[in-house]
Amino acid sequence: MSRHDDPAHLPYRLSAGIMLLNADNLAFVGQRRADAGPEHVDDTYSWQMPQGGIDEGEDPYMAALRELYEETNVRSVSLLAEAPDWYAYDLPQETLRKSWKGRYRGQKQKWFALRFLGTEEEINVAAPAGHKPEFSAWRWVPVASLPSLIIPFKRPVYEKVVDAFLPLVTGGTGAGQHGS
């Protein structure tokens, strides 16, 4: 395998992820549209939390708010916590060349837990903020169930996100919690 065939030489795409929690401490997940990108869709594991790229020079938290708005139309939120670390995943070999024009080996993500303060009428995945829809449906799920919904190559990241933010919904104190 030459250096150019080895994805290890490629950088990670920086992105932000959002665990949006409602008043019942359930997490928002969207079902990825089949045309939303080859790195995300799997017939069995098509659900995920909002996430997306961080533009050059953009603050990760501001990117998280922008991505949440672009994917869900949601703006009524407050910050609960920031994950203590960046979490990365590698794309599977068969998806690597189809995703982001083959420029990245995967994503390195900064995650934020946000409290949803609005009403469900604010959520619009069909026509979010004039952006191309990425989700075809959405629902609220228990935080602990999130890793079982995500495509397998992203599962280790979701396990870390759940570990970081589960104390927010169970009343404990987590490393990622502000003020702890």
Rank of each mutant, 00 (worst) to 15 (best):
E56Q: 13
L79M: 10
M49S: 14
Y61N: 01
R66T: 05
V74Q: 01
D43K: 11
E56K: 09
G57Y: 06
I54Y: 08
V74S: 03
P38H: 10
L65N: 04
S46E: 07
M62Q: 15
V74R: 04
N73R: 10
R75G: 08
E70H: 13
N73T: 10
R66V: 04
N73E: 07
D43S: 11
G57M: 05
G52M: 07
P60I: 01
W47H: 06
A63D: 01
Y61F: 14
D35H: 11
Q51G: 15
Y45I: 01
E39W: 03
E70C: 06
V77P: 00
P38K: 13
T72A: 03
G53R: 13
L68T: 07
D59Y: 11
S76H: 07
D42L: 05
T44S: 03
A36Y: 05
P50T: 04
M62H: 10
L68V: 04
P60Y: 01
V41S: 07
D42W: 05
S46G: 14
Y61M: 08
D59P: 14
E39C: 11
M62S: 14
G53C: 04
A36Q: 02
E70L: 13
E58T: 04
T72W: 03
Y45D: 02
Y45M: 02
Y69L: 06
M49T: 15
G37L: 01
Q48K: 09
S46P: 11
A36S: 15
T72M: 06
T44K: 11
E70R: 15
R75V: 07
H40R: 14
H40V: 13
Q51S: 15
E39I: 11
A64M: 08
S46K: 14
I54L: 05
G53T: 09
A64F: 08
E39F: 10
E67A: 03
E56S: 13
D43T: 11
E39H: 14
D59T: 07
A63K: 09
M62E: 15
E56H: 12
P60R: 01
G53P: 13
D43I: 03
L68F: 03
E39Q: 15
E71D: 10
E39D: 12
A63N: 05
P50M: 07
